[in-house]
Simulated assay, not measured.
Amino acid sequence: MISRPRPRLLTVLLTLLTLAGVTALSGCSDSSASGGGTKITIGFSAWPGWFPWQVAQEQGLFAKNGVNVDLKYFDNYTDSINALSSGAIDANSQTLNDTLSSVSGGAKLSIVLVNDNSTGNDKVIARDGITSIADLKGKKVAVEQGAVDHYLLLLALQSANLTEKDIQLVNLPTDAAAAAFKSGQVDAVAAFAPFTSTALERAGSRAISTSAEFPGAIPDHLVTSQKLVKDHPKDVQALVNTWFETLTWIKDNKDAAVKIMAKRGGVSEADYKSYDAGTTIFTRQQNIDAFTPGVTAQHLDFQANKIIDFIVGTGLAQQRPSLDGLFDDQFVKAAPQ
């Protein structure tokens, strides 16, 4: 099984889609490879909503759209976040709360695409005998500290009038956290698919809270450096166009697509299909709606401010990040319908 956080997609695409490496931040490297002259390095890791990038690569869709992409897979999700923040890669697949944490630390980033929302594929899973979040008081809970499912865990604890101080937090990378829970070393784990499948192999285990209980709290994105947007807007547009073309290809080639994505995720095709309802892949129109300012969880600016209040209040961030330049909807608006 591969390691790292947040996977997302699958038959999800069969549901929603029916609606329809390393380069320096100071400048992308030049290359004469097919697909364009400027090489763009994109990071991604294990989450169903990001595996379509693997499909795009294997089907030659980046080159078809005139962009030269070095697609870099990270076994550890946090490493991919740090790579984007440090300028080691040009773009990355990551969540809104992780992006806000990076911006709080000084990173200059832009969200140019919403891949999906987590609607159940992030879970807090507990051993037999623990039936609610309230039962976690005093128990050992494994989670990748500072990453997306740490945020989910804190939200769940808050809903039960508990805080992190009420549990014994065991900080482990997500894959290791799931393995530790499976082997009985901890009482519970907070993880995302496909690592939830590993955790649920423990006899008697069950999900006691999921992202479905917190609508809109965990959106997933293609995030780029602001420098990439400024210096190479045509390439960014090509990336966004490729994404939507990939979703169409997946819709038209479901079995082949699931095979590619399950292989990348290190899970069976049956397991991959089981993630369906837990990941809501966004259409172009859903992207436009999300980027539009508003006062509900559907809107990124509203959700961002809720997340900022939370991560600052809980100490996950030391200062409020600026949202200037963060939400850039020009590319989804210009994408072919």
Rank of each mutant, 00 (worst) to 15 (best):
154 L>W: 13
171 N>T: 11
295 V>E: 12
153 L>H: 05
233 P>N: 05
182 K>M: 08
44 F>D: 13
268 S>H: 09
290 A>R: 08
245 E>C: 10
206 R>Y: 01
337 Q>D: 07
124 V>C: 04
190 A>D: 15
153 L>A: 10
33 A>K: 14
206 R>D: 15
265 G>E: 11
239 L>P: 03
306 K>R: 15
208 I>M: 04
250 I>C: 01
232 H>T: 07
238 A>F: 03
255 D>E: 15
132 S>R: 07
264 R>S: 11
20 A>M: 15
229 V>Q: 08
208 I>A: 03
302 F>T: 02
290 A>E: 12
89 I>G: 06
327 F>Q: 01
24 A>T: 07
185 Q>D: 08
15 T>Q: 10
4 R>G: 07
159 S>V: 14
328 D>G: 00
49 G>R: 01
58 E>H: 14
257 A>M: 02
48 P>F: 06
118 S>K: 02
10 L>N: 10
222 L>N: 00
87 G>F: 03
18 T>V: 12
66 G>V: 09
204 G>V: 00
105 G>V: 00
183 S>M: 00
184 G>V: 07
193 A>F: 12
148 V>Y: 03
288 I>H: 02
83 A>H: 07
138 G>S: 00
234 K>M: 04
237 Q>C: 09
90 D>T: 06
27 G>P: 03
203 A>T: 12
143 V>K: 05
41 T>N: 07
235 D>E: 11
237 Q>E: 13
118 S>F: 06
297 A>T: 11
268 S>A: 08
30 D>A: 15
9 L>C: 05
334 A>M: 09
15 T>F: 04
39 K>Q: 15
327 F>S: 04
236 V>T: 01
155 L>E: 10
243 W>N: 14
129 G>L: 02
202 R>K: 15
172 L>R: 03
306 K>G: 06
46 A>T: 15
200 L>M: 13
251 K>H: 09
256 A>P: 04
184 G>W: 05
42 I>V: 14
66 G>E: 15
256 A>D: 08
128 D>I: 01
89 I>K: 01
11 T>F: 05
88 A>H: 11
242 T>K: 13
307 I>Y: 08
27 G>L: 07
269 E>G: 03
264 R>W: 05
167 I>T: 04
280 T>C: 06
265 G>D: 14
224 T>G: 09
313 G>K: 05
303 Q>D: 00
88 A>S: 14
270 A>V: 15
47 W>L: 13
124 V>Q: 01
132 S>I: 04
142 A>N: 08
164 E>M: 09
328 D>Q: 09
336 P>L: 04
180 A>P: 09
198 T>D: 13
234 K>R: 08
251 K>T: 02
51 F>W: 06
263 K>Y: 12
200 L>Q: 14
226 Q>T: 12
23 T>H: 11
115 N>K: 06
20 A>D: 11
205 S>P: 15
85 S>H: 01
270 A>S: 12
209 S>N: 07
132 S>P: 12
260 I>K: 11
278 G>D: 05
7 P>W: 11
301 D>H: 10
177 A>F: 02
144 E>D: 12
279 T>H: 01
11 T>H: 10
88 A>L: 11
255 D>R: 14
44 F>A: 08
215 P>E: 00
